[in-house]
Amino acid sequence: MQLNGKRVLVTGGTSGIGLALAHELIGKGARVFVSGRRQAMLDAALRELKSASGIAADVATPDGRARMLQGAMQALGGLDILVNNAGGVRAGRLEKTAEAEIEAMIAVDLLAPILLTRAALPMLRAGGDAAVVNVASGIALIGAPFYATYTAAKAGLARFGEALRRELKGEGIHVLTAYPGATETPMMASNRAGPDLGFSREPAAAVAGAIVAGIEADAFEVIRGGETRARMIALNRDDPAAVDARFLGLKAALEEAVENHSAL
């Protein structure tokens, strides 16, 4: 896909991977509209981006989703690319995770992208050369302890994207799924796990660059983590008990490092 002139809505576009994606897309000549829940963060992001527009709205609410699409239509005159990037996480043992936190993860990480995509499809169809980009997580490919609900939501988003890609095949709308690994973002600020526990972090700009390259190439997926991640995915497929054993050796330290990881 040629990005110059494309009209793009990036949810969760006021920080982290979303903000980095907005920068990358603008650099490719795209016209960008970002959304985020907090007005102050939106204002700061728009000052930084300079040429973008946006709205403060909650993607987890019907009103927020409607206002995002209305705002994008007013600012851009249509929509060619929807980037479902907004997300939330609460790590920890399942039985210690509040029901409200579980519901919030499902609402933001899975239900909201499905419903926003559904509502955006008429706008995307009108362009004739459109795309939906779902930002899942590397954890959707390899389930990790203490991230059970987050893993479920992101894995659901990934399979949603795969099914939708096949549903829309030949209709002018491509679907790409991105699987970032640990990334230097505000969402990761309360996670104290490091490379020794499998959380080797990379800059948000690197992740965004790879996703944009994937959009340009009409890729099906973008998986971060290089050969290390590829080997782990293969091992998880061929010998999941070995992955279980590896996590067992890390479990106590990992639980302590992520028990306060929360960004909802």
Rank of each mutant, 00 (worst) to 15 (best):
R166Q: 15
I106D: 08
E101L: 01
A131D: 07
E167L: 08
G143R: 13
F146P: 00
P145T: 03
A158D: 11
V135T: 09
I142S: 01
I173P: 00
D109I: 06
R166W: 14
G170C: 09
A91H: 12
A120K: 08
A153C: 12
A148Y: 07
Y147E: 13
T97F: 02
L121D: 08
R90T: 13
R125C: 11
T151D: 11
L94C: 08
A126V: 07
G172Y: 00
V135C: 00
I173C: 00
L176K: 05
T177E: 02
V135G: 00
I142H: 00
I142M: 03
A153D: 09
A136L: 07
A152D: 06
D109Q: 09
D129K: 08
R125L: 11
F160E: 04
L94W: 12
L116Y: 07
L176G: 03
L157E: 05
V132R: 03
L157N: 05
T97D: 09
I102W: 09
L124Q: 01
A163T: 15
G172N: 00
L110Y: 11
K96A: 13
G92R: 01
T149H: 07
T149S: 10
G128L: 04
L168M: 12
E95C: 10
R118F: 11
E171H: 13
K96P: 00
P122T: 12
A112P: 06
I139S: 13
P145V: 03
H174S: 15
F160Q: 08
N134A: 11
A130F: 06
T151L: 00
N134E: 10
L121S: 05
N134M: 10
G143M: 06
D109T: 09
G172R: 03
A152W: 04
S137V: 03
I139N: 15
L94I: 14
L124T: 00
A91R: 10
A119I: 01
A104R: 15
E162Q: 15
E99F: 15
P180I: 10
R93V: 07
F146K: 05
E99V: 15
R165I: 06
A140M: 01
A144D: 04
I142N: 00
L110M: 11
L124V: 03
T149I: 15
V135P: 02
V135A: 03
I114S: 11
A107D: 14
L141P: 04
V132H: 01
A152N: 08
T97R: 11
L115M: 15
A152C: 08
L157Y: 04
H174F: 08
A158R: 14
Y150N: 06
A91P: 02
K169V: 12
I173V: 07
L111I: 15
Y150T: 05
F160Y: 14
A158M: 10
L141A: 06
L157C: 07
R165P: 03
A136T: 10
I102T: 12
G128D: 04
A130Q: 04
R165F: 04
L116W: 04
A131K: 06
E171A: 13
E162C: 06
K96W: 13
P113Q: 03
L141E: 07
A136V: 04
G128V: 01
G172E: 01
I114F: 15
G138W: 04
I106R: 09
A152Q: 03
A178C: 11
A131G: 13
R125F: 14
P122R: 12
A152S: 13
G92E: 00
V133T: 01
I173R: 00
L121K: 05
P145G: 02
G138Y: 03
A163F: 09
K96H: 14
